[in-house]
Amino acid sequence: MTTNKSLFLIPKFITTPSQNGVGRYVCQLQRVVLKFCKNHGSSRGIREFIEYDLLNFANKNPEVVVYLKPRRHRGPVIKAEYLNGDDQIVFCHNNTREEIAKWLNLLRTQSGNHDGTRLRKLWHTDYPSIQGPWTPYTFRDPALNLAEFPNEELSRPLDQPKTATEELDELFKKQQESEVAESSEVK
């Protein structure tokens, strides 16, 4: 049976190998093998990289084992092996020295082979909520718990303007209140 599974990216969430970075950071690249041809033109960039930059790379990253593997008349390849058992192969046909350096840097700073996957979220947390998740009842008046339905007040649309009668009523009430206040002042 054939499937189309290889056509689609596998959706994944963020994973970090063994809580990396909680205490200190551990480089996840374990071993890197540079395979190249000593004669062929397509390996020229990788040969230049080996000649000029590889010692620096090895000195700066003592935790990474670097192997060189010359092979006659075959294309240049970088093979990276990670602490979690992943390996990744990068074909460097006709790449320049700078491009090799960039790919090697990418392999060094990765934690595994992410090919064929896509991230579903850019955020991972073990504590999704600290003040409690929102519900329709958060920040609502607790008096609503005792409301009885059908309720005319609560069933009214929120954006309904006041009727003229209601406004008049309010005015009248205000007037009465002010009169009461005035009379009390006089007393």
Binding site: G21, R24, Y25, Q28, L106, Q110, S111, Q131
Partner: peptide, 29 residues
Amino acid sequence: SDFTLVGRPLIQNGLANVHATVIEKMLSH
């Protein structure tokens, strides 16, 4: 759990410490 400090837009400098470590640099799919 009991309080929230809301900045306008940032809260006062030196009131909170948020420390982080860079653990991976990669390329998206």
